[in-house]
Each structure stands twice: as C-alpha cells, then as structure tokens.
Design a protein around this nucleic acid. Structure first.
Lengths: 346, 346
DNA sequence: TTGTACGCGTTATCAT
DNA sequence: ATGATAACGCGTACAA
C-alpha cells in the first residue's frame, strides 16, 4: 500500500532524485538518454508525482484560476473555452473550480491562491457582495465577469470587471415591448433582497415605463421567493401561474432570465393562452435553449465571447503590470424572435 | 508579499506551532482560552492554512471525491446533493471535481488520491472504456454511477456500479411506441463508435422492433457525427432535419436523450409537422426541461435519487470492508406525456 | 496542557 | 549533466 515516490524511481534508475525531477519537469539540463530511461521506468511503475508536495515547493507556477458560481448558467461554458485557449497561448495553465451557491467564492479564491500559488483569478457569476477588506486580502489580480455593475462601496482600483449594462439592456427590452404597443407588461424578477443584476434589470424596466408615461403597477412585478434558486423555470412557471390567477390584466411578460421566461411560457400555454397572439413573452440572457423552444424566445443576448476575450486579456495585462484595473461595459443584442408580437390581435 | 504561515501566528500568540495547529484542527488537548486567543489572532491576521502542506502530512483524511464528467448532464446536481448529505452524515468530507470531456477521469482520480489521500471515489458520467490495468492502480474503492452496463473485459470484483438497464429501458420505450401503433420509428443515437449507453439504447430499440416483427431500417437510425457533443439539442435538430429532407417515411422519433428529442421537436415544428398529431417524439433521461417544453416530452425517467443513495451507501460499505463490490440495476420509469400519440391521425 | 523537532515528497540551489 | 541537501508549511510523536 505504500505509495511510490520520486525516491523509489531514483533508486530504481540508479540516479539521484534531482535527475528524476528534471526528467519530469522538462528541465533543459539533462541528458536525453537518461531522461528517456527515467520516463520509461516511471511509465511502467505507474508513478504519479504528489501535487501537494509540488505546490508546496514550487515558486514559479504560471497558472490562473477560474471560479464559476452557478453551474446552471449555460453560457459560462463557451466563456471558459475561450479563457482556456488564451491562457494556454500565454504559456499559463488554468485551474477550473466550480463554486457551490452556498460557498463564498472569495474564501475559496484565498485558499486556492495559497495552495496553488496562482497569479490571477477570474470570477464568473456570483453576486459581488463582498467586503472590500476580504477582497483586499487577495494579493493577486482578479477580474469579475458578467457582473451587472460595480457596487459603489468597493474601491474600483482593486479589481476589474466586464459586463453588459443590465440596466440599459433591460430598459431596451422593455422599450421594445412598449414599441410593439404593449402597455401592461408584467415582469418576473429576482427575490426582493436582490441588489445585483436582478435589481438592475428591474430598474431598467421601471425606467422605461416611466419615460414612456406608463404606470408602474406593483401587481405586475412578480418577485421570486426568498431562498429559492431565483432564475429557474419552476419559479417562472409558478409566478406566472399566480399572475394569471390574480386576474390582473397584461399583454406581455418579461422574464429577467430566459429560464424564467420559459417557465412563464409553459404556464401560459397551460392556461390556454397563446403566445404571442394573446400574450408576448420576452427573456434575457440569450441561452441556446431559447432558440429551441416553441415559440422561439425573444431575448437579450450577451456578447459572451467578446467578454471572455476581454476578461482574460485584461487579467494578463494586469498580471504583467502593463495596465491598471478597468471596468468594461458591453452592449447586449436584442434578438427578436417568435414569442413577441403586437398586442390586441386576440 | 511574504505569505503568512503558522509560525507567524505562533510567534504573535507567544505559543508553539503545535498549539496553533491544535487550535485550528479542534484538537481536544488544548486550553479553551488559549484556543480562543489563537483563533482571534488568526481571524484578524487573515491567516489561511496551506492546504498543500496539510495534505502532505495528513494520514487520516476522511474524505472521498466525486468526479463528474459532462457538466451538461442535468440530473447530476440532485445526485451530488444526496451524496454530499450522506457523506457528511458519515463524518467524511467530499471533494467535487468536474472532468472535462477530453480529460481522462481515471488519471485524474489517480492524481487526486495521491494529492488528497482520499478513501473512495464516485464516478458520475464518463464512458467507462478504461483499461483494467489503470483501474487496478486505483488503490481505493470506487463506484460508477449511471453506466449502462459493465463492460465484459473488466474484472467485476474491482468496482461497483449503479445504473438503470439502458437496454431494457430503451426497449420499453420502443415497445410503448409500437404499442401505440407506430411501425416506422426513427431513432437518434450516439456516434457510430459509441460502446456505452448509446450502444445499449440502440440495441434495446432494435430488439423491440425485431420481437414485434418490424424491420430495422438503417435509414431510420440516425447517428451523431463523430467528435461533436453527442447528446446536444443542436445534434438532435440537425439529424432530424436530415431525416425529414431524406424523404424517408416515419411516424415517430425516439431521441436517446431528452436533449436530442427537444432538438428533434424543433426541427419538426420548423418543417410544419405537428407533434404528436403527425409525428410522435419520445426522449430518454427525464430532465426537468422536458416537462416545460411544448408539448411536454414523453420520456424514461431514471430514479436518480435512489441511485445516488445506493451509490454512496455501497461506497461506504466497501470502504469499511463490510461488503464486496456490487452491480446494481434500477428500473426506469416510463413517463407518458403530450409528445406521443397514436399515429395516423393526419 | 504545551513546546520541540522531525519528516511528508518535491523542487531549487549549490557543488561537483 | 548530475547528485546532495536545504527548504516549502504543516501535523504529530515525544518530551517537558
């Protein structure tokens, strides 16, 4: 049961441990023949270097970590792919770590930096309600992605972020619906306590209504229950059902996430309400599924590829000291599909 | 920039390092007051123990790892939740690790065991085409989940697995469609080289046809392209489109994954084909989305909760030496929804 | 109850 | 090009 170590390999090869180490790590100062011999022995013995020991000793780990919160978020995977490509181009390695919703991503980042000697961090998702103090403890550069807007209480010189302007895009979507002629637009939004993208998207909606002289009816604003996973199809379904049963009049529903909008569509169909003839439905995010649903979902697409590319570029610039932290805002794209139409066709 | 270590804490507290260590690890032999004092200093100084060093020293890590292949697979998350609960009940900790599709889960397991001194491993997903040799190098017990059937070439005493019988369930679904009166049933299945669940589900389909005296038409068997992500909506869409354009006659499509079936439905709808009036569609897996799509998807649900519970129970039994490896088979559940009906209503 | 000292497996440094 | 050896940060046996 005794684990096989570098010493065992050295002994079996009749060389010193440092030579074995050099063979493993592609060190230049080593005879190609001895290297091959050592690698052969390693192969056949099934030796695997102990990563803990390596990390303990290593000083020059050219690596970064990507922390992802919210496995459900479907557009992270394409972002990751891009980040990984760019990271490898720089000769760095990338550690991917998923963060459960109950975990604190900054705590995990702190641990990871110690453990793996990282040079930088990318945060994807998460709700950005961290104390400046904790963030300050993170001694490596970090970049936030897909965070609606930077909270005012944190020193902007401490970090970078890349995002679409959730307020503006949400307003854009609402204005599109208004432009179609809708006057009673229901919205499905995050739980009451939300201070992140949920709030911003809701504010954008309200601003659009006000600017066009439409009343903001509290009864049309449906917030998710506290403690549930906000942006789920189930929530969208449930809240839409409640809305329908309330008897409140509306000609459009705007789900502040595509998943909510899909739940809403199912609820409408269950009630025998046609989309978009009776009620229009719009989402936000631009997930793949929206294009497969029947009807195809009108939504706001975030330019995830570009965003990912900028994030990683920014991170490496900061690591190399070329640049200060930045706060980039990208424009979303309104995708008009089959789920929205002019009202009053009924 | 110098990282703060346990020695610094010891110095600042005026105690020895072992006392600090005892404080951190809830060791019994320590004065509660000194412990509190130390913890306070740790808090304020922001000290974080170096995990690499800890793993290097520790012998008695009561922990297991869960390796997940295929982030896209939506029912893993509920399995993980259950596994985590049970693991904590046993006083163990659980390490969750996602495995990219190009990574080898056994290699990663090998590394992880060395690095973290794990006591057991759960493999979720993955395609189980590993060499017995490599598997033999894994010195801790492991359990495979959701693997259709164990390959014959591997010694069954080496591992456990928990699965539904993909062959049988797939046959069940096909027979259901036949029972409705369908005689020309198209199937969307994995890439040609698949030797895992894809193959089993295809075999189940063929067996059902043969038993009922129906011909197996190669033209109705649509395999995914090599090198793409097999079970994607996009693939389902594309292959169904090709099927329609081929002019081949069929009254039902059976997607061997719900995602494929959803892609198929979109393609049918795009072609102006009604579901289920013109063509019935069935899936496999029982993902949440199937119940939100319009029409709701007929599918085979895997009893993931029970399976997860059994997997972890099994693993701990084997760890404690109470039991030998086992190979459990669970029954799937046929969920008949709105996407299937008798043919010929057109 | 507490402190000292050793060693975990590896890499970096220095000598050869 | 290679080998001996000192760290890396921590847990723990043992001494106090």
């Amino acid at each position: 049961m005794a684990e096989i170590t570098i010493k065992d390999i050295a002994r079996r090869c009749g060389v010193g441990v440092s030579t074995v180490s050099r063979a493993i790590n592609n060190h230049p100062d080593i005879n190609q023949e001895t290297k091959k011999m050592i690698m052969d022995v390693i192969q056949e013995s099934g030796y695997i270097p102990n990563n803990s020991a390596r990390n303990l000793k290593r000083v020059d780990t050219k690596s970064i970590a990507v922390l992802i919160k919210g496995i459900t978020n479907p557009f992270f995977s394409s972002m990751i792919k891009i980040i990984e490509e760019e990271t490898q181009k720089k000769g760095y390695s990338m550690e991917l770590r998923h963060v459960e919703s109950y975990e604190d991503e900054v705590d995990i980042a702190l641990e990871l930096v110690k453990e793996k000697r990282l040079r930088g961090i990318v945060f994807l998702g998460g709700y950005f309600s961290h104390s400046e103090e904790k963030l300050g403890m993170l001694k490596v550069p970090f970049v936030f992605g897909t965070v609606g807007a930077a909270p005012e209480n944190i020193n902007k010189a401490l970090y970078s972020n890349v995002a679409v302007d959730d307020f503006k895009e949400s307003k854009k979507m609402t204005e599109y619906l208004i432009g179609l002629g809708h006057k009673e637009i229901a919205i499905l939004t995050a739980e009451p306590g939300d201070i992140s993208i949920g709030k911003l998207r809701l504010e954008g909606y309200k601003a659009a209504l006000k600017e066009h002289g439409l009343p903001v009816k509290e009864n049309l604003i449906r917030k998710m229950e506290e403690g549930t996973e906000s942006y789920s199809m189930e929530n969208g379904y449930q809240k839409t059902k409640e809305l329908i049963e309330s008897g409140e009049s509306f000609s459009a529903i705007y789900g502040t996430a595509d998943s909510l909008a899909i739940g809403a569509m199912r609820a409408l169909l269950d009630a025998g309400i046609r989309i978009p003839e009776d009620v229009s439905v719009a989402g936000y995010d631009g997930i793949e599924l929206g294009d497969y649903y029947a009807p195809r979902l009108t939504t706001i697409r975030q330019p995830v590829d570009e965003m990912a590319r900028e994030m990683i570029k920014l991170l490496f610039h900061i690591i190399s000291g070329k640049e200060e932290h930045k706060h980039l805002v990208f424009a979303g794209e309104l995708l008009t599909k089959e789920s929205t139409a002019e009202p009053g066709k009924k």
